[in-house]
C-alpha cells in the first residue's frame, strides 16, 4: 500500500501540493485526475522518490520512499516526458533497466515488443510519440515491480493501443498483483480502467473514492408523474445531488442504492420511471458541485 499523508510541496512561491493525503491499495488501479497544474506530476514524483516533500510523509509498503532503495525497488516510474539515452534502441534501454531492476523479464520484453509491433533494434529517436509511450509501458511492465506509476502515459496512445495496454494491465494485476497508478487529465480515459480515483485540484485532493462505490451509491433516475405534487412524495427524504425538470420529465441524481431510489419513486405511482447509467464525468460533476466546484471547468 502507498500511503500519502499531509504532503505539501512548494516550488519557490508556488504551492504545488497542499496537505494531500491519499491511500492507494494494492491490487487496484488508482487514477489520479486533475487539470494541468493541479499537482498530479508533482505528487507522482514525490511518490516515486524523485522529489522530496516539504512536509508530510510518503511510504510504500511501510517504507519511506525518498532515497530508500527498498521502497524504490517496488516502483517503476514512467514520467510524462520519458527519457531515453541518445541514439539508444529498445534493447539498450532494456539492458540498462535489467542492470537496475533485478527482476526484469528479458524474455517477456521480447514477446511484448513483438506483440506490440515495436522493433527492438531500431533507434528510439525514430519512434513516434505514441510508440515511445508504448515502449515506456512495456519497459515498466517487464521491470516486474509491484507498483507502476504512469504520468499521462495514456494520452499519446490511440484507442486500440489504449485497449491493448488496459488488457495488459489487467493481466499483470491478475497474475502478479501489479498496482498501476495512472495520472491523467482525461476522466473518460480512466473510466473503464480505474478502480479508485482521486481528483486533484490546485494542489489539494478534492475527493478520493472507490469508483464502484461511487457508482453504487449515486444514481440518475428519470420519471414522469401523473399529478402535480407527486414528485414531492417521491423525492421526500432522498439525498438529491442534482434535479432537473423539462416539461413533465424529471431527471434526478441522488445518493442511495438503485433499489432504494426506485422503490421510493415507485411509491408515488409515476407514469414512467427509469434508472439511467451514470458516467464517471456525471458522478464527478455531482459530487463536486455539492462542495461548490464546477467540475466541468476543472476537468473538461
Amino acid at each position: 500500500m502507498i500511503e500519502v499523508k499531509q504532503v505539501s510541496k512548494k516550488f519557490e512561491d508556488i504551492k504545488a501540493l497542499d496537505q494531500v493525503s491519499v491511500s492507494i491499495q494494492e491490487g487496484s488501479v488508482f487514477g489520479l485526475v486533475g487539470t494541468n497544474g493541479a499537482g498530479k506530476s508533482t505528487l507522482m514524483r514525490i511518490m516515486s522518490g524523485v522529489l522530496k516533500a516539504d512536509s508530510g510523509s510518503v511510504s510504500v509498503d511501510g517504507h519511506p520512499v525518498y532515497e530508500n532503495l527498498r521502497a524504490k525497488e517496488l516502483i517503476f516510474y514512467i514520467s510524462d516526458e520519458a527519457y531515453f539515452f541518445p541514439s539508444a534502441t529498445p534493447n539498450d534501454m532494456e539492458q540498462y533497466y535489467r542492470s537496475v531492476y533485478p527482476g526484469f523479464g528479458h524474455d517477456r520484453f521480447g514477446k511484448l515488443m513483438a506483440q506490440f509491433g515495436l522493433e527492438e533494434k531500431r533507434k528510439i529517436k525514430t519512434f513516434s510519440k505514441g510508440m515511445k509511450k508504448q515502449l515506456s509501458i512495456l519497459l515498466g511492465i517487464c521491470a516486474n515491480t509491484k507498483y507502476l506509476f504512469c504520468d499521462e502515459t495514456f494520452d499519446g496512445l490511440d484507442p486500440v493501443m489504449r485497449q491493448a495496454v488496459k488488457s495488459l494491465f489487467a493481466q499483470e494485476m491478475t497474475q502478479r498483483g501489479l498496482t498501476p497508478v495512472i495520472a491523467s487529465h482525461n476522466l473518460r480515459e480512466l473510466e473503464d480502467i480505474c478502480d479508485y480515483v482521486g481528483l486533484l485540484h490546485r494542489g489539494g485532493i478534492l475527493l478520493a473514492r472507490d469508483l464502484d462505490e461511487m457508482k453504487f451509491h449515486i444514481h440518475k433516475i428519470q420519471c414522469v408523474f401523473r399529478h402535480e405534487g407527486d414528485e414531492e412524495k417521491a423525492f421526500a427524504g432522498m439525498e438529491i445531488l442534482q434535479k432537473e425538470k423539462r416539461g413533465s420529465l424529471y431527471t434526478v441524481t441522488a445518493r442511495g442504492t438503485r433499489e432504494g431510489i426506485l422503490r421510493q419513486v415507485q411509491e408515488a405511482d409515476p407514469l414512467f420511471a427509469e434508472v439511467l447509467p451514470l458516467s464517471l464525468e456525471e458522478i464527478f460533476i455531482s459530487e463536486t458541485e455539492v462542495v461548490g466546484y464546477d467540475i466541468k471547468k476543472l476537468v473538461f
Binding site: R45, G49, V50, E67, L69, I75, Y83, V100
Partner: peptide
C-alpha cells in the same frame, strides 16, 4: 540540468 533526466535517474532504485 534536465528535468527529464533527473526524473529518470532519481526514480531508479539506485542510491545517489
Amino acid at each position: 540540468q534536465s528535468r527529464k533526466k533527473v526524473d529518470f535517474y532519481h526514480s531508479l532504485p539506485v542510491r545517489r
